[in-house]
Design a protein around this nucleic acid. Structure first.
Length: 430
RNA sequence: GUGACCAUAGCUCAGUUGGUUAGAGCACCUGGUUGUGGUCCAGGGGGUCGGGGGUUCGAAUCCCCUUGGUCACCCCA
C-alpha cells in the first residue's frame, strides 16, 4: 500500500479537485490576458546548471534532479524564472518591447511539505521585461490586485505589502550602516521576527548603528505605512526625498489600488536577486505564508546571457491562495462543468431516442448526458439529473418517436411539452 | 535534511486495563412494480485498523523500523 501511495507532498486531483484547480488557473489566465500579458510555457525539466545560474550550487538539494541515459544532469523545474530568462535571452533582439509574458506552470521542489507548501504546485508567473520605471512595477502590482478582486477578495481580506530596495538602502545608510554591511542589514531585516529582541539589538549594533538608531530601525521595520501617505515615512526616517518609492506611490494611486497597498519595510525577499520594488501579498491576519511575491530584478536577463534588460514580475502559488479562499468562504462548493441537458427515458420507446438525440446535441456543442441505468423510474432519473447539476432534463416518452418530448427546467421546476426540433434553441436560449 | 505530534471504511470519527465475527454518521450502490429531483424508508458493498517486524496464549491497543500527514526549523528561487 505504501508503495502505491502518491508521493509525499503531491496531490491527486479527483474531478471536483481538478475543477477547483482549473477555477484558479482560469482566473489567472483571464486576468493575465486582460492585463495585456501573453501566455508562454517551457519544458517541465531543464539542465540542472540552469538553476545554478541564479541560485548557486546550494539549490541542488532543494530540487528534484536526475541523470538521463546520456549522462546529462537534469532537474524538474522548481521555478519558471530561469526558463523565462533563457527564452528571453535567446531571442532578445527579435522580441517587441516591452515583453509581457505570463505562465501557469506546475513546479516541483524537494522540500518538506507543511501548511501552504507542497512538493508539487501550480504557480502563476507574470513578468514585464524591457520597461523601466514605476509604471511597470505598478502594473504588476495592479495585476495581482486584479486577480484577488476577480476571486472576490477585498482589501480587508489581504494586504499588498510593498517595499523598495533603494529607499530602504537610503534609510539604512542614514541610520549609520556602512555601505559594505548593507546586505547583512537586509538579511537582519528579513529575519527580525524569528530573533530574540536582544539578539536583534546586538546584530543591529554590529552593523554600525548607535543604540537610539537601532530602536528607530526596529520601529521602522515593524511599522506599516499606508499607500498614498508617504509623509509619515518621511517624518520617521528624516529623509525628505524617498526617491523611487515616491514614483511608485504616485503610480499605485494612479492605478486606483492604494487601498489594497501598504508599505512594509520588513518585506525583503531574495537578497541577491531583486534590485528595486519588492512586494508580497499576505492574508490580512498574517497567519499564513505569503500568497504572492515579486519585484524588480533588472540584472536577470543579463545573468542568463542576454542583453541588459530591466524586468519586474511576480509569482503566486495555488496552495496558499486556495487556503485563503476557503478560509474566506470564497471557494465555490462545486465548479465542475454543469450539463446543459440530462436525457431521461421514461419508456422503452423513449429509450430508443436517447442516443440519437444526445449525439445531435453534442455535435452542436451542447453538454448532454444521460443515464446508464436501466430503470424507467423517472424520479430516480431526475434525481440523477439533479446530482449532475444539469440545467435541463429532457424526458422522452412514447411521443419521442413523433418528435415530441417534455423539457424540464431543473432550477425552476417548469416543465413543458416541446417539439424536439426546437430543443437546441430552447436549451441554449438562442 | 533536523525535531515534535499523528495514522481505524471514500470522508468525519467511536472502539473499555491487550480478550470472541472492528462499529456509527455522511457518501456510494440496489430496491420501495409500472412518469417527476437535491428530503423519506429498507437493504447492500466496502476496512488483514497505513505497511513490515517484534512482545504475548491472544495486538487496532505495547515496542522497533518504514511510508504518509500536521507543525516548527532550514529554505522560500
Amino acid at each position: 500500500m505504501s508503495k502505491l501511495q502518491a508521493p509525499r507532498g503531491t496531490r491527486d486531483l479527483y474531478p471536483k479537485d481538478c475543477a477547483w484547480r482549473n477555477f484558479l488557473l482560469d482566473a489567472w489566465r483571464r486576468v493575465s490576458i486582460r492585463n495585456g500579458f501573453e501566455e508562454v510555457d517551457g519544458p517541465i525539466f531543464e539542465h540542472l546548471d540552469l538553476y545554478k545560474v541564479k541560485s548557486g550550487d546550494g539549490i541542488v538539494s532543494e530540487l528534484f534532479h536526475f541523470e538521463d541515459r546520456g549522462g546529462r544532469e537534469l532537474a524538474i523545474r522548481p521555478e519558471f524564472t530561469p526558463t523565462l530568462a533563457r527564452m528571453v535571452a535567446a531571442k532578445a533582439n527579435a522580441l517587441p518591447r516591452p515583453i509581457k509574458w505570463f505562465c501557469v506552470p506546475n513546479l516541483c521542489r524537494a522540500e518538506r511539505p507543511q501548511r501552504g507548501r507542497l512538493r508539487e504546485f501550480w504557480q502563476w508567473n507574470a513578468d514585464i521585461m524591457g520597461l523601466e520605471g514605476a509604471t511597470a512595477d505598478a502594473e504588476c502590482i495592479f495585476t495581482v490586485v486584479d486577480l484577488m478582486q476577480e476571486l472576490g477578495l477585498e482589501p480587508g481580506h489581504v494586504r499588498m505589502k510593498i517595499s523598495h530596495r533603494t529607499t530602504v538602502k537610503d534609510i539604512l545608510l542614514k541610520l549609520g550602516v556602512a555601505e559594505d554591511k548593507l546586505l547583512s542589514a537586509f538579511d537582519l531585516l528579513d529575519r527580525r521576527d524569528k530573533m530574540e529582541p536582544e539578539a536583534f539589538t546586538q546584530a543591529a549594533a554590529k552593523l554600525g548603528m548607535e543604540p537610539d538608531r537601532v530602536e528607530r530601525f526596529e520601529q521602522m521595520c515593524r511599522c506599516k505605512y499606508p499607500c498614498g501617505e508617504l509623509d509619515q515615512l518621511r517624518e520617521q526616517t528624516g529623509i525628505q526625498n524617498l526617491a523611487d518609492l515616491e514614483q511608485l506611490d504616485a503610480q499605485l494611486q494612479a492605478f486606483g489600488i492604494a487601498d489594497w497597498c501598504e508599505y512594509d519595510l520588513g518585506i525583503v525577499r531574495g537578497l541577491a536577486y531583486y534590485t528595486g520594488t519588492v512586494f508580497e501579498v499576505h492574508e490580512a491576519s498574517g497567519a499564513l505564508r505569503a500568497m504572492a511575491g515579486g519585484g524588480r530584478y533588472d540584472q536577470l536577463v543579463e545573468l542568463f546571457g542576454g542583453p541588459s534588460m530591466p524586468a519586474v514580475g511576480f509569482g503566486m502559488g495555488d496552495v496558499v491562495l486556495s487556503e485563503v479562499l476557503i478560509d474566506k468562504g470564497l471557494m465555490p462548493d462545486d465548479v465542475s462543468p454543469c450539463p446543459d441537458v440530462f436525457i431521461v427515458a421514461a419508456s422503452d420507446t423513449g429509450a430508443t431516442q436517447v442516443g440519437p438525440i444526445a449525439s445531435k446535441l453534442r455535435w452542436k456543442g451542447i453538454h448532454a448526458r444521460y443515464s446508464y441505468k436501466t430503470t424507467r423510474n423517472v424520479g430516480k432519473l431526475l434525481k440523477e439529473a439533479a446530482t449532475a447539476r444539469s440545467r435541463f432534463a429532457l424526458i422522452l416518452g412514447d411521443d419521442a418517436t413523433n418528435g415530441k418530448a417534455e423539457l424540464k427546467n431543473m432550477e425552476t421546476g417548469d416543465q413543458q411539452v416541446i417539439a424536439l426540433a426546437d430543443l437546441e434553441k430552447l436549451v441554449t436560449g438562442a
